[in-house]
Design a protein around this nucleic acid. Sequence first.
RNA 1: GCCCCCAUCGUCUAGAGGCCUAGGACACCACCCUUUCAAGGUGGAGAUCGCGGGUUCGAAUCCCGCUGGGGGUACCA
Length: 497
Amino acid sequence: MTGTRVRVRFAPSPTGDLHVGGARSALFTWLFARHHGGDFILRIEDTDRRRYVEGSVEGILESLRWLGLEWDEGPYFQSERLAIYREHAERLVAQGDAYPCYCTPERLEQVRNEQRARGEPPGYDRRCRHLSPDERAAFEAQGLTPAIRFKMPESGTTVVPDLLRGHITFENRLLEDPVILKSDGFPTYHLAAMVDDHLMGITHVTRGEEWLPSAPLHVRIIQAFGWDLPVFVHLPVILRPDGKGKLSKRDGAVGVLEYKKAGYLPEALVNYLALLGWSAGDREIFSREELIRLFSLEDINPSPARFSFDKLAWMNQYYINHIISLDDLTIRCIPFLRAAGLVSAAAEDPASPEHAYVRSVVALLKDRLKTLAEVVELTSFFFTEGTEDYPAELLVPKKTEPALVLEALDRTRAILETADFADEAGMEAALRALAEQLGLKAGQLFMPIRVAVTGRTVSPGLFETLRVVGRTRTLARLDVARAKLRAYVAQQAAAAG
RNA sequence: GCCCCCAUCGUCUAGAGGCCUAGGACACCACCCUUUCAAGGUGGAGAUCGCGGGUUCGAAUCCCGCUGGGGGUACCA
C-alpha cells in the first residue's frame, strides 16, 4: 500500500442516532486518514428502506461535525446509486458468479425451520443455484421478481487477511450464497459496500468486528470482480459497562448528541473514545493534533472494551477544570444558560457587560463543573434577584441555636453594609473576627451566610460569591434570611411555651 | 448447535523472552489542604498476567489444549 494515497470511509446506515460505538469507528478511521494525509469519505448506507429512520442522516452529520470529524468527500447515498449495483450484480450473473433466486421469504423460513428440526445448521439450501433452464422459465412466467445470490464455492477455504488479527481461514462449505441484490432492486451490504469501496478507491476498510463472519463473502465477491483486496481492519466492538453484550440504547446515554445535550465537551468524548481500545503509552490526555500524530491502526487492541460512563465523566471534568480556558468555558456555558432563561442574547457578545458577568460567575465554577449543563443548576442564584426558596432550618447549622444565628446574621449585615465587596480578604477577616466574638467556628458563621446568599448549602467559595453577587443583592438576601429566621424563632418559642 | 474473534488489577490499559518484587488512569479507602462542594496533594488496597501443558538457561510476552467472554448465523446493516 505504500505509495498509494490513503482513502478511507465511514459508512453508517441511517437507522437511528450515531452512537458512541459508531463514533469511535468514525474517529479511528478519521485519525488514520489525517495521520496519513489521506481522504476521509462519508457514505450513507441507506439500502434498507424498512429500517430507515427519518432525520437520522441529519443527526449523523451533526454528530460528526460536533465531534470535529470533517469529511473530505460525500456524503454519498447508496440509494442514489441503485443502477450501479444492479449493473454489477448482472455482471456477476453473466459471468456465472451469481444467479437469480426465486425463493420467497416464506420458503426460506420453512427451510430453516426444517433444518433446525433435524438438528442441522440453518441456511439456504441453494435450490435456485441448480435450477434447470425450464424451471427458471417457469418461475419467470409466474412473474416473480428474483433476488440475486452470489455463488460461494462449496468446498475449500477462503482466507481473510485482517490488519489486527492476521489471516483468518474460513471453510467455504459452511458459508452460504448471500443475497446481493434484493427483489426490490436494492443491493444488500455485501454488494453495495464492496462495489462502493472499490469504485471510491478505498484502501483500508475499517468496520466493526461484527462484519468478520461475513468477510469471506466479501473477499470472494471482490475476487469475482477481479479487484484488489483492500486492507481489512475489523475494529473491536464496544461492550456494555457490565460486559454483557454490545453497548446499546438500553444501557443509558449512547447517542453522541445526547452527550452534547448533557454538556459534554466534544474534545473529552473524542479523547475518551480514542483511548477505548487504543493507547500510546501511559499518557491519557491528548489534544486532537497529538492524536493525529500518534495514531496508528496497528496499535488498536483487538479485544472488545467496556464503555465506562465514570471514566468519561472524569475526562469531561478534567477538560473543563484543566484543559480549556476560562474564556472558552464561558462561551460554551452560555447556550445552556440561555436555554434556561438565565441570560439574554446579549451575553453571546464577548464585548457585552453581561458576557463579562457570566465570565466572572463561570470563573468560580471552573473547578466544580462536571458538565456544561450543570452550570445552570449551580449558578442560577447569580442571575436572579433573590434565591430560590429554602427552609429556615437550612440557616441553622448543627450545634448552633436559631437565636444565635439570627444575631450573627444581624451583625453580618451591619458589617457588609459598609464592607468593600471587591476585597474578599477584608470581608473574610471581618467575618472571622465576628465568628470569634460570637463564640462560633468560622464554618458555623459562614454556612448561614452561604445559605442566605445562595439559597443552598453547596456553593463556590463564600467570599468570591459575595464579591460577584454584590452588596445590593447580598443585603436584600440577608434581610430575607433574617425575616425567615425571626419567624422560625418565634414559632419555636410559641411551640415551647 | 455451528462458525469466527478475544483473554494483564472491578474497569480502560502499559508490556512486543530477561528492564516486572507487573507500571499508569478511572472507581474505591485513608490522610493533608479547607468556610460547604469540588479541585489539588500524599499514601493505601487491588492482577500468583483465566487454567493446564509445552518451547527456552529464562515467558505476561512464543506454541497447543481447555475454560470463559464477545460476535455472527436475514431479500438488516
